[in-house]
Design a protein around this nucleic acid. Structure first.
Length: 592
DNA sequence: GCCGTTTTCGGCCCGACTGTTTTCAGTCG
């Protein structure tokens, strides 16, 4: 195998990383370079989102130039990097700008200008220097650094050190919905909604945004109530139309924005983002001599208001179809909306079953009968659930041996007899061993109605070959949590995804979007690439407790962010459809 | 440095809040 291609497009990431840091340097160098900085940031985004290794585009400058946000200059630098392993401009920038200063610019309140003035006045080179200079009073002697500003920087430094700032989607949703309930109870609030990355259902959330409509006369009182919400540890900002608070445990920032009811749509759009999506929208308005801000879409005179009461009205006035929040990431959705080619996104109501969960037979918390009744109670539309307890080698999860599975099947038969139909399916999460083989023999695997194969060890190495082996196994129907990542805890292992997706599509093997909030694996961009490669996905909760059956909402959000339609997701089909998918693989192997 | 359904030059999203200063620059979302 091509070694250079086995590490999840290492070169794309390296280049994106360099360009991001180059952008940081240009920002630091000041206003004259700020558009160059933006250009490098955009190029970095393009590289990071590329479905294939950059070298496949990099035959010459012209073919690179065809990629969005990559022109002649950056194309030359990409080629230079591929050919020589370094970029002369980047080397030069590193001589001009102390790179640890980029770190300082990440701290809230510390922009390029502040960072530069501290570097020039006090020779501050890194975070430690900054802390020292604040402590021994050198900073406070400088013009422009009053006591309040100093205190803010001190607190920002502390916060940045303690928390790495982001919350998991499930945690942020819980806190956000709780806060939303309190905001809705404030007098004078007409309407309140969660916006921001929470509404876009990003896998991790930096802060909570709430949009409120009210009459102008109610603003002061609403802001006052909001900043006195129980659990507020600090008020970060508080003006006429917006306020920011810091909630304690877990520490997270929440922003409130007030607008009048007729501006709801444009404000919702603005506050939902993403930033990049908004910039595209505003550029589009500008191309047509208009202007978008929080208050509406305005005509050339800046006064005539063309739209803004609903989000749809703004999109429509710009000649775009309505774009679902999960798609607003500037990944080509505006283009699709302009051509009316947006996908019709899958929803939880489309789901006919859950493809992975665990019972007390291995590491689950409840018995099969309870899982079945809870699934039916929570999701009356479900026609099946698949019990996928662990195979023997996953000791930590009390994996079951073949004899145990035969006993388990009898229990499943009894539960189904009680329900009166074959609601519970006999599945397994079989372990993919180090050499790519499975830890149950074929004659046992043949007894299951659904076989998911997953990796539970060897997270540090390249696991491409193991996944390819599993895809090529005639009795494997799906790959579970394919990348092995744990959000904010464990990086995904290295995989040559194009090769694995190609193999999954060829062999008729599905790939999972695992809905556990710390997995969400495949992540959105990989799921998108899998679908583009012709892979069928499943969305499953991997529930270890009945309450976790509700995680299907998180999994579906991830699928929606990947642009998935119902057709892309296998378990939107009745079981007969799942069986056809499964049997198609078996029969293609029988004829080989 | 990138980009073009008025442009190959002249733009590059837009407004609120803070802190410090005395009319505004810097930062953020």
């Amino acid at each position: 195998m091509d070694i250079a291609n086995t590490e999840d497009w290492r070169t794309n990431r390296e280049l994106a990383d360099i360009f991001t840091r180059m952008a940081g340097c240009y920002r630091y160098l000041g206003n004259t370079e700020r558009f160059r900085a933006i250009a490098y940031e955009r190029a970095a985004r393009t590289l990071a989102g590329l479905p294939d290794d950059i070298s496949t585009y990099a035959t010459d400058t012209a073919s690179l130039d065809r990629l969005p946000n990559i022109g002649e200059g950056i194309a030359e630098r990409i080629l230079e990097y591929l050919q020589t392993g370094h970029i002369a401009t980047w080397d030069e920038l590193q001589r001009q700008v102390p790179i640890p200063l980029l770190d300082i610019m990440e701290i809230q309140g510390m922009g390029p200008a502040t960072t530069k003035s501290l570097h020039e006045a006090l020779g501050i080179e890194d975070r430690q220097d900054l802390e020292d200079a604040i402590r021994d009073g050198r900073v406070s002697k400088l013009r422009g650094f009053g006591p309040k500003r100093l205190e803010n920087i001190r607190k920002a430094l502390k916060l940045d050190k303690e928390s790495h700032g982001r919350l998991r989607l499930d945690t942020a949703l819980r806190i956000g919905e709780d806060l939303l309930r309190q905001v809705r109870a404030i007098p004078c609030v007409i309407r309140a909604e969660l916006a921001g990355s929470l509404r876009r259902r990003k896998e991790t959330i930096g802060d909570i945004d709430i949009l409120v409509t009210c009459a102008a006369s109610g603003r002061k009182s609403i802001i006052r109530h909001f900043t006195r919400t129980p659990g507020v540890s600090r008020v970060l900002a508080s003006g006429d139309t917006k306020a920011s608070i810091l909630l304690a445990s877990p520490e997270v920032q929440a922003d409130l924005r007030l607008v009048e009811p007729e501006a709801f749509g444009s404000a919702f759009l603005y506050l939902t983002g993403s930033r990049e999506h908004n910039i595209r929208l505003r550029s589009l308005a500008r191309e047509r001599h208009g202007k978008i801000n929080e208050y509406g879409l305005f005509g050339p005179d800046g006064k005539e208001r063309l739209a803004g009461d609903t989000e749809a009205s703004v999109y429509q006035a710009l000649g775009l179809a309505y774009i679902e929040p999960e798609l607003r990431e500037d990944r080509g959705e505006l283009d699709l909306a302009a051509r009316n080619r947006l996908p019709s996104l899958v929803g939880v109501r489309d789901m006919r079953g859950d493809m992975q969960m665990h019972s007390v037979w291995s590491d689950g918390a409840t018995d099969i009968a309870t899982l079945a009744s809870e699934a039916l109670r929570r999701f009356p539309r479900y026609e099946y659930i698949v019990i996928t307890d662990h195979s023997p080698s996953v000791r930590i999860a009390r994996g079951i041996d073949p004899k145990g599975f035969r006993r388990q099947w009898k229990e499943i038969d009894r539960v189904n007899a009680d329900i009166g139909r074959a609601f519970v399916k006999k599945g397994v999460e079989v372990d993919i061993l180090a050499d790519g083989s499975l830890d149950l023999p074929d004659d046992v695997l043949e007894g299951f109605e659904w076989v998911t194969a997953s990796i539970h060890s060897g997270f540090r190495k390249d696991n491409t070959e193991r996944l390819l082996h599993a895809c090529r196994h005639r009795l494997v129907h799906g790959i579970g949590h394919p990348s092995g990542r744990l959000l904010m805890k464990r990086e995904p292992y290295a995989v040559d995804w194009p090769a694995v997706f190609r193999s999954a599509a060829e062999t008729g093997t599905s790939m999972e979007i695992n809905a556990q909030p710390d997995r969400l694996d495949l992540r959105d961009d990989l799921a998108r690439q899998a679908v583009a490669a012709g892979v069928r996905l499943t969305v499953s909760t991997d529930a270890h407790h009945p309450s976790q059956l509700d995680h299907i909402h998180l999994g579906i959000s991830q699928a929606r962010r990947a642009g998935c339609t119902r057709e892309n997701i296998l378990n939107t089909l009745p079981w007969a459809g799942v069986r056809r998918f499964r049997d198609a693989k078996a029969s293609s192997y029988a004829t080989r």
